[in-house]
Design a protein around this nucleic acid. Structure first.
Lengths: 188, 188
DNA sequence: TAATTTATGTATCGACTCGATACTATATTT
DNA sequence: AAATATAGTATCGAGTCGATACATAAATTA
């Protein structure tokens, strides 16, 4: 069992990335959490781009998330769009300024420098191992997985090469199925 | 290049661990950062157990660290010992209550659950890959490595099987060389 | 030796996160 | 139609964090 070693490395890496992120976004008057929210919103699908989606993903309370979103909106990094059917819901779209910020800050320059030093083989192994670890954490603690449609139980490929979600009963495009979803449940 | 994928996984894992840690230590009236400080102090050697050591490790300002340490001292999780030679310095020792807290909280139950699901081979690979990644980050950004003596340029094994640090010019015991050091510089 | 510079650490302030609580409004269920 | 569940907001207090200013001790230099 190498639990301790692995934990220490993950904790250390997470700390370094967070510290670096703090330094990086300070000039925009932002906090690490703001960048993480934008990052999530840039990756998730239309079922998941709501305050509750962010709440589930980041594991904070909805009140906290509400405040964070207000900051992002005031800074013009985010736009709110009321849902047309369910008037309780709000969809959150990253603005062009927000996308610009993400482009320069994620992945952090610190991290890009480092990854370039690794061999292609090491990188492939890293992806595999990290994915395995993340899935183990999510599965053994019955957490939401926030995966993409490709690995989701609800996703069906239709004869015309488009996709269909059994949960929402909606067709999904090729772009759709590459986004992460808060309703995602692993196939296996 | 899998930079984006690897970054996303590390960020996600770091977030999950941090969120879990927040929930975990809340009942003691603590924050994630407090546990991280205690964790560091439980792993570092006598050259590194000072407020400046913590400052370098966590990448915060010394003012911030000073406050954090006061909280830990007030809670009885930490004791301060003035250095006998250099009167500017203070050594920080985790108290027995602090050690007890660490034992139950690190690694987090969430993480232990997950690691037990991984094969021995996966764990070995994880350690290897994460170590490689961490070293790449530290090296390509000329950061301090905070490694243990075994991998340090300053460390020499003597004929009687004890160790000697060329930097501090002091003998080191078998226990000493398993602790992390803020002066550590990789051999290679 | 004396003066200067550097290093360690503390104190205080303002901006901000975060959770808790209370609240409104809309959907859904009974 | 009434009760309940869901999505989101508003506000408060405790606490992090960086910046600035400050005190003391050590190291360097003149």
């Amino acid at each position: 069992m190498k639990t301790n070693q692995i934990y220490d490395y993950i904790e250390r890496l997470g700390n370094l990335l967070r510290t670096d992120s703090r330094r990086d976004v300070a000039e925009y008057g932002l906090q690490p959490i703001h960048l993480e929210v934008l990052h999530y919103l840039s990756l998730c699908n239309r079922y998941s781009d709501t305050p509750m989606g962010v709440t589930d993903y980041l594991g904070q309370t909805k009140g906290t998330v509400s405040q964070t979103l207000n900051v992002l909106e005031k800074k013009g990094l985010l736009n709110k769009h009321p849902d047309s059917r369910d008037k309780r819901m709000t969809h959150l779209k990253v603005s062009s300024a927000g996308k610009e910020l993400l482009k320069t800050s994620i992945p952090s320059p610190l991290f890009v420098n480092a990854c370039e030093q690794l061999t292609e083989q090491s990188q492939t192994q890293a992806v595999k191992v990290l994915q395995e670890l993340l899935q183990a954490i999510q599965h053994s603690n019955s957490m939401k997985s926030f995966g993409i449609c490709h690995t989701c139980r609800y996703n069906h490929k239709k004869e015309d090469n488009t996709y269909f979600c059994e949960l929402t009963q909606e067709s999904l495009s090729n772009e759709d199925i590459q986004l992460i979803c808060r309703e995602h449940i692993n196939i296996s």
